[in-house]
Design a protein around this nucleic acid. Structure first.
Lengths: 127, 127
DNA sequence: CATAGAGGTTCCAGCAACTGGAAGGTCAAG
DNA sequence: CTTGACCTTCCAGTTGCTGGAACCTCTATG
């Protein structure tokens, strides 16, 4: 299976798939003409990557998850640890953004948004 | 005032202040020895930048806000517009993260996290 | 058989917003 | 005169791709 079929199958752009090969995540075989040739195992990994990246795991986390995925003797605790710390990071980001949202929405509400220069938003930024 | 004092005053790292000069945001004068020399106006702008960056505005948004800040004939509507679209972006990110959080916390809860290989997280990623 | 077009390949550059580090100039104190 | 803390510039690296150039390969058609 060539790269455009692998792309369709996995939902990942061909460029991304080549990039993942560059950084050592999925290494397909090669045909006589130099074209990449993806087997079932490669396709499983690509789908795994698109799903885990979609859940916001970093590429390095994905590398770890992928090797656990392939390790028949893994401890589920190791997987859970990665997921828990990612979850904590997400929750940290959410509260950071919520705090920004609160501040900004107050400022936006306070601003008349007309042709005059007076502006509570600017005043706050300049304080 | 030299760069380390400007850094202390604004709360921005000296490296960042130099970077802001590179990209044309705050251009201090220079002393005979080549050292940067920050005046009150420069310091106001640096504080403005640290506050607006702290609210998550992109550097390009900050450039726009800074020029509105300096424009005595600005329309507050222009400021409000920038802030509103930033706020919308923040809200988009929050809901995206909340959706990830929901999925991930379900998966984490479902995983025993022991020495055995069975793992609902891996199973989900591999589906 | 020539050629056009749709694939594939590699490699280099760029995005955002800094940050670290090297190599070297300047200044005040002891 | 030296030490140490400043300052300067410039280059490289970060994350995770993405766009583009230059070139190769395959298939279908006139």
């Amino acid at each position: 299976m060539n790269i455009s079929d692998a792309s369709r199958d996995s939902g990942l752009p061909a460029k991304t798939i080549r990039y993942y090969e560059d950084i050592g995540l999925v290494k397909p075989g090669r045909l006589g003409n130099g074209y990449r040739d993806y087997n079932d195992d490669d396709l499983h990994k690509l789908r795994f990557l698109q799903r885990s990246r979609g859940l916001g795991f970093s590429v390095e986390d994905c590398r770890g998850l992928l090797s656990l995925y392939e390790d028949r003797n893994r401890a589920s605790a190791d997987v859970k640890e990665i997921a828990k710390s990612h979850l904590a990071e997400i929750e940290r980001k959410i509260s950071e953004l919520q705090s920004l949202q609160k501040t900004l929405s107050h400022l936006v509400d306070a601003c008349h948004g007309d042709h005059r220069p007076h502006c509570p938003i600017i005043n706050d930024l300049a304080r």
